[in-house]
């Protein structure tokens, strides 16, 4: 049986975990909906913020629901999932169709929320998707990485609800501005049944942000040549709101603590952007980098293997290039915050 109507697409935004508008997520929802003639909607869950409305107004969503706790408190992941599921119950304010497609951010928090929602909404969790298509009969086709990025698989879905975590879908890149459409804003107050988990902030053993969950990772390799190179990486990561990683040779040299090791024998990181500075790009190192991460390579060796997997490359010595990059970043305007 094939669905006979184009699916509506919903971008799910968890506030305040989403510090800024996740434009690739919103863009993917808009493009997917418009390509098949379905509606594009956004669901923002968390403390109400006037900037949300203003930021979402010009984008062309048919409906934007904002779901907030009655007491205005921030919602943890399990509470956000509960609130959205409540709003999407039959007869609830969000009339979620049986073939709806929900999109979440491809960062750790979005993936967790996606998994929770899939269970609660009886949807199929698609994981992190490279691309999504609905064919002329509205059958879902998805391309995603598997086997640690060693295979790209294509899967076809039976009729039903789906949840995908997306960065920027391949087919939604380079799109033009969306024609303006009047957006219907709806507010939902909800009192969560589940209590928040007790969370205690712990002192960090070092001053710099940890790798886990970082949206941008700046990694140094053997090519940094000395400890001073990592000082420059910490500055760059600070400018970008990211975290610093290191390849095994840099760890072995004592330029960074072992907790920052990325690679097969170190941590696995899944940032949106991975900046590799003086990193050769061995398979063992890349095994620790999410295949969806967009790699930027800075290396003075134009033959370095890292350029084979990078999206953007700079052939230069970091000593000359990083100060110029830091200066250029400081001159950039700040992105819109919610």
């Amino acid at each position: 049986m094939k669905p006979d109507t184009a699916p509506d697409v919903y971008a799910v935004i968890h506030l305040p975990r989403s510090g800024a508008l996740d434009r690739p997520l919103l863009n993917s929802a808009l493009q997917l909906a418009r390509r098949r003639g379905g509606g594009a909607h956004a669901i923002a869950v968390g403390p109400s913020h006037p900037a949300i409305t203003e930021a979402l107004r010009p984008l062309g969503f048919k409906t934007v629901w904002t779901i907030q706790a009655k007491d205005g408190a921030a919602l943890q992941s399990h509470q956000a999932a509960e609130a959205i599921a409540f709003a999407c119950e039959p007869g609830g304010p969000i009339a979620l169709s049986s073939n709806a497609l929900l999109l979440t951010s491809a960062e750790a928090a979005g993936i967790e929320l996606g998994g929770r929602l899939a269970a609660r909404l009886h949807a199929v969790p698609l994981g992190k998707c490279l691309d999504i298509h609905m064919d002329a009969e509205n059958v879902m086709h998805v391309r995603r990485a598997a086997f640690g990025g060693r295979l790209n698989i294509s899967v076809q879905g039976a009729p039903g609800r789906y949840i995908a975590a997306v960065r920027e879908l391949a087919s939604a890149e380079g799109m033009q501005a969306i024609p303006h459409e009047e957006t219907d804003f709806k507010s939902i107050d909800y009192q969560t049944a589940s209590a928040p988990y007790t969370i205690t902030q712990l002192p960090r053993t070092e001053e710099h942000p940890a790798l886990d969950g970082a949206g941008i990772v700046v990694t140094g390799g053997r090519g940094m040549g000395a400890q001073e190179g990592f000082d420059a990486l910490y500055e760059l990561a600070g400018l970008l709101g990211g975290a610093v990683g290191a390849s095994l040779p840099a760890i072995d040299a004592g330029w960074a603590p072992v907790a920052r090791q990325v690679g097969q024998s170190g941590k696995y990181v899944s940032p949106a952007t991975y900046i590799a500075v003086g990193v050769s790009g061995t398979a063992q190192h890349l095994a620790g980098v999410d295949p969806h991460a967009r790699i930027v390579a800075i290396n003075k060796d134009p033959e370095a293997a890292i350029f084979q997997v990078a999206e953007i490359g700079v052939v230069a010595d970091w000593r000359e290039f990083l100060p110029k990059l830091a200066g250029a970043l400081k001159s950039r305007p700040q992105p819109a915050e919610l």
């Binding site: 199929v124 698609l126 490279l130 086709h141 998805v142 990485a145 598997a146 990025g149 060693r150 295979l151 790209n152 698989i153 294509s154 899967v155 076809q156 879905g157 039976a158 039903g160 391949a170 295949p291 969806h292 991460a293 967009r294 790699i295 390579a297 134009p302 350029f307 084979q308 997997v309 990078a310 999206e311 953007i312 490359g313 700079v314 052939v315 230069a316 000359e320 290039f321 110029k324």
Partner: peptide, 27 residues
């Protein structure tokens, strides 16, 4: 709910999506 219809190793460049764009011009 899902059926695998195809699988291939990703192309070598840009982890299967595009060629690396080497920036040009002055530093």
């Amino acid at each position: 709910s899902m059926k695998v219809t195809d699988a291939e190793p990703p192309a070598a460049s840009a982890r299967g999506t595009r060629e690396c764009r080497i920036l040009q011009g002055s530093l």
